[in-house]
Write a protein that binds this DNA or RNA. Structure first.
Lengths: 213, 213
DNA sequence: ATATTAAGTGGACGAAGATTCCGTTTACTG
DNA sequence: CAGTAAACGGAATCTTCGTCCACTTAATAT
């Protein structure tokens, strides 16, 4: 996938950042366009990072990523001031897919089935994207003030499917989306999780979630 | 496997590694007793670590702990070859308390109440001992082969209260102690957990856990 | 007491990684 | 083509982990 869906790029003005200006020149008009080599390097770094993360896990060093991308450390840090920025760039597409899946589930399925199916998608996703969830968790742990876009996007999806089920009267109303994300996300980032175990636990959580008839 | 019941609280032994020469070796006969300064330093390091962890959180450096204990880095590493060994030593008492609480709950309460109460204790404990759970999780993530005694002790407690309820027919039988620990522990190590949220989620988990009448 | 000796000590040291700094290069613009 | 700001890259710095080893000391033997 080289040219992916044009993700609505945001002004990117959260703290310190403005790092992930994704190659596309926003026609502000007042300043120069983004240089072509910068665009190219940005892309190469993301690709290299994806490869290295897949290969070495989440303890890959920044310099090794820079080296594989064929750029210097300074260049990497110019584009991604913090490690988490790079991680977010790598997994942006996946997160977007999850969010879209939540929306289609809500649109196409009955409320309870939408909730169940999307949680199941999330679970299967987690099993493959442990690196991402781990990194996310760790940066958030280190600095809870940090607003992580991908995190918020996922939280929105949790809220979407849950509130949809709550409005339909099939899910208990004393918990909210971030509660549920804490529970399911926490279990999915557990280092010991294996496939069948996740399904068992998810079934139990769904039983606890369903409104008692 | 039977495990030796640790009668004394502060024998100067090493954890981890392969040398599981545990506790006060009674009649090895051939070697010297533990030197008094070694014993003293062991204790001072644990005390210093407790203070530093409480003060700086889990990202406290080993050298800063060594310095506060008034010993060199080498001494610290002699006593605690890995960071997790130190963490376990610091929180050993707390873990033991939890385990004892599980046993008394099972002894003194009805099965379901024992399960509920102990999970609640675990939750309240987690809120205060975030450092411990985080460290535990991280070392386990880095090396899943590692056998961590405190982790096993907690897992045993989960299994105890759960299986007790299952035998009494009040808890679903398709999950086991480590499943439950993954779920509840995962949620408790979440960086965003706050008091009321934990209680809400725990109530839900208990609903999902209770056998449907 | 004193000598012996193995265990214990502490800080210097090297590896490794994160992040910054800055002289040089390069792609746009006029 | 020249001017310029942006981007580059890698050397330099900083921090922490963990090891090593020459020296010290407490327990034991004499």
């Amino acid at each position: 996938m080289l040219r992916d869906v044009t993700i609505p790029l945001e002004p990117a003005e959260h703290l310190g950042g403005s790092a992930t200006n994704d190659g596309v020149d926003g026609d502000d008009g007042s300043h120069r366009a983004v240089r072509s080599d910068a665009q190219r390097n940005h892309h190469r770094i993301v690709v290299a990072a994806r490869e290295v993360f897949a290969l070495q896990g989440s303890d890959a060093s920044m310099v090794s990523i820079a080296h594989r991308a064929g750029v210097g450390a300074g260049t990497l840090y110019r584009h991604f001031p913090h490690r988490i920025d790079l991680v977010e760039a790598v997994y942006r597409v996946d997160v977007e897919e999850l969010a879209v899946a939540a929306e289609s589930a809500v649109r196409d399925l009955a409320p309870w089935e939408a909730l169940r199916d999307w949680l199941d998608s999330f679970l299967r996703y987690s099993l493959g994207k442990r690196v991402f969830l781990t990194e996310l968790r760790e940066s958030f742990e280190k600095n809870p003030e940090l607003k992580l876009r991908s995190r918020e996007r996922v939280e929105q999806s949790f809220a979407l499917v849950l509130e949809n089920a709550q409005r339909a009267g099939v899910a208990r109303t004393d918990i909210d989306g971030s509660d549920l994300m804490l529970l399911v996300g926490g279990m999915c980032t557990g280092p010991t999780l294996v496939g069948a175990q996740g399904e068992r636990l998810l079934a139990m959580v769904l039983d606890g979630l369903r409104v008692t008839p």
